[in-house]
Design a protein around this nucleic acid. Structure first.
Ligand SMILES: [Mn+2]
Ligand SMILES: [Mn+2]
Length: 303
DNA sequence: CACCTTT
DNA sequence: AAAGGTGAGCTTTGA
DNA sequence: TCAAAG
């Protein structure tokens, strides 16, 4: 008698071992709950993963035990899991790529609670098609400060630089402001642009914002992190679960929700996110923009 | 989680 | 047979 | 050159 339960999606299937193992002890959520969560949001999250190298944040013994950061596809993954070999400093990494629901569910069954995605596609790994401003509280600032910072970032990008933005909660304590790019600019230039924009905002609001890489230098200021915009760096995938009590979810927002009264960085969870995901705030994501015009505008706007 | 090594 | 180890030693920044 | 950071 072999244990576990058979999971099927499309033309692939696999055996889920120990489906009733509790991975979120405070909430009682099991491995099966995690797999079913990802099945429910698959129509939203798979398009956010498609074609992108992944980094797996796995918690095989639950969220109260230290997790495993894993980039390479282990030998035992089935051959229908797509993988792409990408160069690293002294060799290469064989990343998983999730193009379909079956792969998503298999990764969930491997206790990959949180897939992080590259900001570039596997076929063009040096040229991101997303730019991310990662806004984090620091030194005791709160989510209200993060929201205020996000308004400043959005106002600069949209009104002064004429770039479209998309917003999401990270499911932890902050927000991401995402700009779709045309994929023709390499990471170093994209990050340089993002850093220039962030430093402009810090110059305007030096007591509320910071780009200091050292925690000790940040003080009580919201951190504008542009360092995710680099080769082999990743950002949490929209609709991903976070390995935190309550099983919060990184949730895309409607533009107007940034100013709404009820926004909570952990407001959507494994339980509530599937209903929410019947909406699709990022459905109208504009085409990726070239960086050149925005870069020229940035050079002319005043402090 | 699943494989591998060590005891 | 059972217990224990492993999976990123990435990539950028600036002191 | 290396510790810190995400
Ligand atoms: Mn961050
Ligand atoms: Mn963050």
């Amino acid at each position: 008698m072999t244990g576990g339960t058979e999971i099927r999606a499309g033309s692939h299937g696999f055996r889920l071992n120990r489906p009733e193992k509790v991975l979120f002890p405070d909430d009682g959520f099991t491995k099966r709950d995690v797999v079913e969560y990802y099945r429910a949001v698959a129509p939203r999250i798979v398009p956010q993963l498609r074609g992108r190298p992944l980094m797996m944040l796995r918690h095989p013994d639950g969220i109260e035990r230290p997790g495993v950061v894993q980039k390479n596809v282990p030998d035992h993954f089935p051959d229908w899991i797509r993988r792409e070999r990408l160069p690293k400093e002294g060799g290469s990494v064989l990343h998983p790529v999730c193009d379909d629901t079956a792969t998503l569910l298999y990764l969930a069954g491997q206790a990959c609670l949180t897939p992080h995605r590259w900001l570039a596609r596997a076929d063009h790994p040096d040229h991101p098609d997303r730019l991310v401003f990662d806004l984090d509280p620091s030194g005791g600032t709160g989510f209200a400060d993060v929201r205020w910072a996000a308004r400043r970032v959005c106002a600069l990008l949209e009104e002064e630089l004429r770039l479209p933005v998309a917003l999401m909660t990270t499911g932890s304590s902050g927000l991401h402001v995402v700009v779709p790019l045309d994929g023709r600019t390499p990471f170093d230039e994209v990050r340089g642009f993002a850093g220039d924009a962030a430093r402009l905002l810090v110059a305007r609001h030096p007591e509320r914002l910071t780009v200091e890489p050292r925690k000790a230098d940040r003080g009580r200021r919201t951190y504008l992190d542009v360092q995710r915009n680099a080769y082999a760096q990743t950002a949490v995938t929209p609709y991903a679960l976070r390995a935190l009590p309550g099983a919060p979810v990184a949730m895309p927002l409607w533009r107007g929700e940034l100013d709404g009264p009820d926004l909570d960085p952990r407001g959507w969870t494994l339980t509530s996110a599937p209903d929410r995901a019947r909406e699709d705030p990022w459905a109208g994501m504009p085409r990726g923009r070239a960086l050149g015009p925005a870069r020229r505008r940035l050079a002319t706007v005043e402090e």
